[in-house]
């Protein structure tokens, strides 16, 4: 029961046109109850999930962008973003939200766990993961 596995949630869909992004986020929040080593990978249109400045006041949809900022509290250690996917969409990490992480026991803090990675790193990170959930 106590063996900790490396989980990766792979997000490749834009946030509002389909339900995938929200479902992934909910599964991450629920899964956080089990002590695992969790990271999220955003690639292709999935990188749009983290773009700051979303305003759904005229769309009758819940704006769940603020919820990503709580992931650090839920024990998520890394939000990786594929660099090439950002570039193809005219985006940089400056366009993305920041997510802080803090260990309440040790008071170790990281200001921002959102990190752009290149293709080689993506390959490596996925290979290192024991379970990859795709959305």
């Amino acid at each position: 029961m106590s063996d900790i596995k490396k989980f990766m949630y792979l997000n490749r869909r834009a946030p509002y046109g389909t339900i995938y992004a929200w479902e992934s986020l909910e599964v991450v929040l629920i899964g956080a109850a089990f002590d695992q080593q969790v990271s999220l990978m955003f690639m292709d249109d999935g990188v749009f999930q983290l773009v700051k400045g979303s305003d759904t006041s005229q769309s009758d949809m819940k704006n769940f962008l603020p919820t990503y900022r709580t992931l650090g509290d839920y024990g998520v250690r890394h939000l990786y973003v594929d660099k090439a996917s950002l570039e193809a969409r005219g985006l940089t990490t400056d366009d993305l939200i920041e997510v802080a992480w803090e260990d309440f026991e040790t008071e170790e803090e990281v200001d921002n766990i959102v990190e752009a990675v290149d293709a080689d790193q993506v390959v490596q990170l996925m290979a290192e993961s024991e379970v990859v959930f795709s959305f």
């Binding site: 700051k52 005229q58 769309s59 704006n63 005219g90």
Partner: peptide
């Protein structure tokens, strides 16, 4: 469509 641009944080200058 404006409301869909807004939800996706695509501002006028973009």
């Amino acid at each position: 469509l404006k409301s869909d641009l807004m939800a996706r944080a695509i501002k006028d200058d973009r």
